[in-house]
């Protein structure tokens, strides 16, 4: 029973992360189609747009809060190599936006979103979520001392591997880790 509960929690967490990473496509589509929230119809339409944009921001904040339930890890040996990855997701994001802007009907959007969702869920890019940048996180590709390539999300501004250690990390999946060190 406990195993099933843990399994459900892990899957819902992964689903939440996937939603965060892909939801901007929906936001762009809704803005393009001049959709608005019924409850906000008394306000100008840009209030609805802002509310729409805030949705993925709020769910991302939620997922960041939930990271405290993840398991700990650490990197105590100086890594071989580190490379900033903030910009590498821009092409894929531009791709998302162009798709959203050129999709003609809502049905097409839901289908395309479904396919995208499945692929993002299955790939290791779940946490490739630009909203993290708003929360002050940076993305890094890192090669550890024993030559393992991982994806790291950290608040640190890293330029060199000299004396670089991460004493408290949290494991998002086997390739993705988030740095939770205080004051980092």
């Amino acid at each position: 029973m406990e195993i099933i509960i843990r399994w459900v929690i892990q899957w819902s967490y992964k689903l939440l992360l996937t939603f965060n990473a892909t939801s901007l496509i929906l936001v762009v589509y809704f803005i393009k189609g001049r959709y608005y929230f019924n409850c906000l119809d008394k306000f100008p339409i840009w209030v609805s747009y802002i509310a729409c944009i805030m949705c993925p921001v709020v769910t991302t904040a939620m997922s960041l809060f939930l990271k405290k339930f993840l398991s700990y890890d650490s990197i105590e040996k100086q890594p071989l190599d580190i490379e900033q990855a903030n910009n590498s997701f821009l092409p894929s994001y531009l791709g998302y936006f162009f798709v959203a802007l050129s999709v003609p009907t809502p049905e097409t959007l839901w289908f395309i979103y479904f396919i995208l969702f499945v692929f993002t869920f299955c790939s290791q890019a779940i946490y490739f979520n630009p909203i993290f940048l708003i929360f002050g996180y940076q993305f890094y590709y890192m090669t550890t001392a024993d030559n393992v390539k991982i994806f790291l999300i950290s608040k640190k501004q890293i330029k060199t591997t000299k004396a670089l250690v991460f004493p408290t990390l949290k494991r998002i999946n086997n390739f993705t880790f988030i740095d939770v060190e205080k004051g980092g």
Binding site: I3, R6, W7, S71, D73, S74, I75, E76, K77, T144, A145, D146, V148, I150, L169, R171, N173, N174, F177
Partner: peptide
């Protein structure tokens, strides 16, 4: 000999 960091190892699954 190889042990450096825990990040190199995959998480144990319940099964």
């Amino acid at each position: 000999e190889d042990y450096e960091d825990s990040v190199a190892y995959n998480q144990l699954e319940a099964a």
